[in-house]
Design a protein around this nucleic acid. Structure first.
Length: 287
DNA sequence: AGAGCTACCTGAAGGC
DNA sequence: TGCCTTCAGGTAGCTC
C-alpha cells in the first residue's frame, strides 16, 4: 500500500480534479471492497458537491457540502485513474487523458464517479483491501478516533514517543507500525527511518534514550518529506492520481535491498521477519 | 493490557 | 511452457 507519502501524493492529485465539482453519479460495481459499502452510500454522494480534500494518516477525506465526508483507504493496491472526455483541452497536469483502450471496464474497476465537468474518476483495487465509508458531519468515525499523531505534525515529539513507549516490550519495528501511536508509517518508511536513525528494528521500544528519540523524530519527518517531494514510491501497483509513477523507490537505502552493502559502512543489509512482515536493516550500524 | 498471529484477495515473480 | 510456492505497501479481529 501506499504509505503516508503515497496517500499524500494521491490526495494532492485528486484535489484539482474533485474540489468544487458536483458528483453526478456514483457506480459501485460490487457490494464491497474490504467491507460492504454503507447503507445510503451512493445516494449520499450523488448530487453532493466536493468542498475539500484532506489526508489523515493513510486515509483520504473528501469533504462534501452536506457536511459529511467520503472516507477512503487505498489498502495495498487501491488506485485512482482520472478519465477526461476525448478532445478535452487544457488538461491540468494531474489529468490522465482518455485515449484508445482507456475505459473504466477493467475487472478491478470497482467504483466510478461521474463529475459535472465530464470527468470520470475510477477507483481500482485488485486485492480489495481498500475501503470507502461515510463520515457524519460531526467528523466522528471509529477508524479515525483510534489513530495516533500525524508524523509530520507538531504533536510528534521525543516527549510524546517517550510517554507512549514507556515500558513497551515490543520491538521498535512493531511500535512504529502501530497506527495508534504514530499514524501513517508503513513497512517501508519504518525500515528507512530506523536505518537513518541507526536504531535496530529489534530494539525494545521502551529502552530508547530521549536524545535517540529526538533523532528518530527528525529522521521520520525527513524520510517522509523526501518521499513526498519525489511523488511517493512506485511499488508494483502504486501510481499517483496523475498516472505518473513516483520515484522514491529508487532512493530506498535498505528496503528490498537484502544482501546489498549498507550504503554508509561495510555492513550488509539483512532481511528478517517481524510480526509476519519483512524488515530490512544493517546489523552493523543499527543498534 | 499488550504482543503476536491469521485472514482478507489477487497477481507477479522465481524455482523446477 | 506450465505448475507450484512465496511474497507484496494494511489492518481488524482473534488468540494467548
Amino acid at each position: 500500500m501506499p504509505e503516508l507519502p503515497e496517500v499524500e501524493t494521491v490526495k494532492r492529485g485528486l484535489e484539482p480534479v474533485l474540489k468544487g465539482r458536483k458528483i453526478l453519479k456514483v457506480e459501485t460495481r460490487r457490494g464491497n471492497l474490504r467491507w460492504a459499502f454503507p447503507p445510503g452510500f451512493v445516494a449520499t454522494l450523488q448530487g453532493a458537491k466536493v468542498t475539500s480534500l484532506a489526508r489523515r494518516a493513510k486515509y483520504i477525506l473528501v469533504g462534501l457540502d452536506s457536511g459529511q465526508s467520503l472516507l477512503i483507504h487505498l489498502g495495498m493496491t487501491g488506485r485512482f485513474t482520472v478519465l477526461t472526455p476525448k478532445g478535452t483541452t487544457n488538461l491540468g497536469e494531474f489529468y490522465f487523458e482518455t485515449g484508445a483502450g482507456e475505459k473504466a471496464d477493467g475487472p478491478h474497476d470497482h467504483v466510478v464517479f461521474d463529475l459535472d465537468d465530464g470527468v470520470k474518476l475510477v477507483y481500482s483495487d485488485p486485492r480489495r483491501f481498500g475501503m470507502m465509508d461515510l463520515v457524519p458531519a460531526d467528523g466522528m468515525h471509529k477508524l479515525l478516533d483510534e489513530l495516533g499523531v500525524e508524523p509530520l505534525g507538531n504533536e510528534l515529539s521525543a516527549d510524546y514517543l517517550a510517554a507512549r513507549f514507556k515500558k513497551k516490550a515490543a520491538p521498535m519495528k512493531a511500535a512504529l507500525l502501530d497506527q495508534s501511536i504514530v499514524a501513517g508509517l508503513g513497512n517501508i518508511y519504518v525500515c528507512e527511518a530506523l536505518w537513518r536513525a541507526r536504531i535496530s528494528p529489534k530494539r525494545k521500544a521502551g529502552t530508547l534514550k530521549h536524545d535517540k528519540l529526538e533523532e528518530l523524530v527528525r529522521h521520520i519527518r525527513d524520510v517522509l518529506n523526501d518521499a513526498i517531494r519525489a511523488g511517493g514510491s512506485t511499488l508494483r501497483d502504486f501510481q499517483g492520481a496523475d498516472g505518473e509513477k513516483g520515484s522514491y523507490q529508487e532512493r530506498f537505502q535498505v528496503y528490498d535491498h537484502e544482501g546489498d552493502p549498507c550504503p554508509r559502512g561495510d555492513g550488509v543489509i539483512k532481511r528478517i521477519v517481524q510480526s509476519g512482515r519483512s524488515t530490512f536493516y544493517c546489523q552493523k550500524c543499527q543498534k
